[in-house]
Design a protein around this nucleic acid. Sequence first.
DNA 1: TTGTACGCGTTATCAT
DNA 2: ATGATAACGCGTACAA
Lengths: 324, 324
Amino acid sequence: MANIHEIAKLAGVSSATVSRVINNHPYVSEPTRQRVQEVIDRLDYVPNLNAVSLKKGMTKLIGIISLSFNDSLGLFVRGFTMYAQEHGFNIALFITNGEKGRELEALEMLRRKQLDALVCMIRVNEWSVIEHYTKYGPIVTWQRVNIEAIPSVFMDQYQGYTLALEHLYARGYRKIVNVYGSMRGLNTKERIRAYHDFCEKYDLDAEAFPHFYDLNSIAAGEQIAHWWAERAQTDRPDAFACSTDYLAAGLLTEARRLGVSVPSDFAVVGFDNTEISHLLDLTTIHYPIDKQAENAFIMIRNALEGLDETIHHLEFKLVERATT
Amino acid sequence: MANIHEIAKLAGVSSATVSRVINNHPYVSEPTRQRVQEVIDRLDYVPNLNAVSLKKGMTKLIGIISLSFNDSLGLFVRGFTMYAQEHGFNIALFITNGEKGRELEALEMLRRKQLDALVCMIRVNEWSVIEHYTKYGPIVTWQRVNIEAIPSVFMDQYQGYTLALEHLYARGYRKIVNVYGSMRGLNTKERIRAYHDFCEKYDLDAEAFPHFYDLNSIAAGEQIAHWWAERAQTDRPDAFACSTDYLAAGLLTEARRLGVSVPSDFAVVGFDNTEISHLLDLTTIHYPIDKQAENAFIMIRNALEGLDETIHHLEFKLVERATT
DNA sequence: TTGTACGCGTTATCAT
DNA sequence: ATGATAACGCGTACAA
């Protein structure tokens, strides 16, 4: 393949001049610029990025680590990519499927300079492991975590969950069951706190109905539908605040299969405003994931280029549909 | 950051020896190997990948271009990554969202040696544009295309679609409406061919009911539900063979909202066996996407390393659920 | 305005 | 078994 020297030779200039033309440096006379550009075009020349990266010490490539595919990730990636590309960065996506090795692969690429930075959506390895890699480049996360070296674009779900609960209350529901997600994550803790404050505010018994933990799949939602159906009529809750739209979807569709009528028999609120919530006309909580993505990129760029651009403030929103 | 020379100095050897230790070359005495390894460990040294890539002329990084996120892509990526990592390759994912520029970004990375090869799931630019880039590295596609330079892991949908039609016939449905996807793609052509052969075989009138084209979204499915409901009772089809599970999902859920009973009023068959078809208990056609991924990787590796490993033969499968 | 020459961090060839 | 040293392809002081 043609390299910069070949271009130089053919254009009758030094490689330095070719480099200047490529990078739009000033102090190149118009005639030489044209002559060089002509050769570049003719030979279909383009600089080798490995050489450029080696020289500059950066690849303009940012990695995004995620556990799996889903709508939220898609939105995040779309937003992040947009901002990144505006500033000359490309992104590489790593889907771990929960395998530590695959996450480490990405972290190692950071260490070995193939990646300039990393966004860790949902981590697999221990935070201490990930923290260890921050010395090789900025790492930003989507999860909530209190490690100084790992800034986060996490949104405290207290506000969002309260939105859901207040909505159920306004609609007249009083017997609410909470289906929480991962116990490890702090989302669940904030939701629990939101629920307790909510109960206190309206003088409800927080323990009147069971709380479910560690559930977020469609299948889990289906289970809960059965749980409800098998309960004594008098002892049934009238609303479910769910950890995710997926769980809510499972609950909703299985309930209907069992002949339950939503929202008259009970209400369902999802979380995330994913496509499936639209499909099923599910009331849910929306959050500005594209803004989170922008924040993540701003943080990374600040770290990478020593800037100090300010972060957006973020808020949840209720999306009212047919299940409440 | 420490580089190979620093290690060499501290270990009292030349950088060549360090390189040999790193790459597990023979002809390094055990004492020196240990001494070098010790320094490597102590300084937490790891070779700079940009330098390695520059030197070796390859990055061990393969790009995957896709139009958007969805279950199929997830399965493909998972499979592909598995095979790739087994052979020391990493993957970078590019989601185009239909924007040509984003696709070109990936193609340029191939041209500029940051990527060794590319899998183009669903292209955005013209094939001629993509073909032009094959001179910079192997490009494999998931779509059907007859360009020698762009090998494909496409599966002829004739067989799969026939599976769906035969199933409907066996179930007693005779008034079938076809909802085809993209007119540009060759999938649709094969499905049309399958339908005509099917009609001929069973002596049905292929034009008894309208054919829909260029539809594959949930929203389009919802439209079709209305189309059906507004038709005269006597003139209604009794089955829909859909382009995708998503369209089928839209059709199914909207129909039920309209009080239609599936499968007694009409049957629905999706295509792809995505998660949503499971959720909605939708009869659909499955295809071995992980095997396609493996084939894609084999093709790329054959091209990259001059091998000649053989490709798997692939087949569709009917997944019978509750909508037929 | 242009050219020379060095360095980025490796690997690989050729001596020794 | 080990060491010099020349690439790999580019950017950039510094000199001219």
